[in-house]
Design a protein around this nucleic acid. Structure first.
Ligand code: FES
Ligand code: FES
Lengths: 154, 154
DNA sequence: ACATTATCTACTAAATTAGTCAAGAAAAAT
DNA sequence: ATTTTTCTTGACTAATTTAGTAGATAATGT
């Protein structure tokens, strides 16, 4: 039962914007550096996040990504749903979504179990917001790297 | 967040023995037929289940697999742990297990979240037994196919 | 005009998963 | 004892998914 790399990176990336951004747009290369993720790979993930309305983007100098909502309003489930394409542990759970439907559905008990498991997971990821992550991170004593200003004034 | 095929098949296979076996040993080919799973592939899964002490095997004519414990005592988490190799959603969660440890652990908030998620899932799969599946299946009205006797007397 | 930074589409490489195969060993039936 | 049935073992292959790379393009600020 493994969370895809895109989901893990995605959550960390959005968190990074919230934590280090301070309202300003944050550039991919900075996120990539801080989170140690390939910048090119991050691009793809941000594509999805943008389409889903979780972040907004701005091109050109001093461009970058910003959160589309406040950190309290972004729940992990929102991110993961986008990067993972659903939290259900098996396709049988939602035959109508995945297109192909399993002909065992009528007599299959396990399907009900997988469905419940998926719901539990969903509930959990729905209960955690980006704001929560920021607070936890402060507790851990992770240094905030505030904005570009540093670069200019050094 | 996908459960591996081995886990899904594994649970269905153990359930099949409980439901259709009636105490007797159940043969791979019968399980494979009823559950529509490749018999060759099932063999591999049963290997793991046997090593984990979930089923016992008996060779030769009228041989097959039986449950090592009663259906109430077999929890889904037992099966899944074997077939999936742990329920943690990412390797960082247990660096000591997976060998390689991530150097971000100290400053990583998401790790704590993944860990919690894994625990939630584990708790859920710990709360469901094979007996539960059997009861659900009877409710669904799935026909029991009792033993070899059928074959002989027809 | 120019440098910067996101956008889009396509491609490649690596890893994992699912599934197959063949030879062998134990147990039961005859 | 011989034959048949069925599990056992370990290697092998194919398919799929995931992770990552690349290049050309569009928008933006200075
Ligand atoms: S519904 Fe498809 S195998 Fe259970
Ligand atoms: S602990 Fe490894 S990335 Fe979080």
């Amino acid at each position: 039962m493994r969370l895809s790399t895109q989901s893990r990176y995605g959550v960390r990336a959005v968190f990074d914007i919230a934590y280090h951004g301070g309202g300003e747009g944050v550039q991919i290369k900075d996120i990539a550096r801080r989170q140690e993720i390939s910048p090119r790979y991050l691009e793809q993930i941000f594509q999805k996040l943008r389409d889903a309305g979780i972040v907004t983007s701005k091109r050109g100098p001093r461009g970058g990504y910003s959160l589309a909502k406040s950190p309290e309003e972004i729940r992990l489930v929102d991110i993961i749903r986008v990067t993972e394409g659903g939290l259900e542990p098996v396709f049988c759970v939602h035959p109508e979504k995945s297109g192909k439907d399993c002909d065992r559905v009528a007599k299959c008990v396990t399907r009900l179990i997988w469905k419940e498991a998926g719901e539990k997971l969903e509930d959990f990821f729905d209960s955690v917001t980006i704001q929560d992550l920021c607070e936890k991170s402060e507790l851990l004593g992770v240094q905030k790297e505030r904005g570009r200003s540093l670069m200019y004034y050094i």
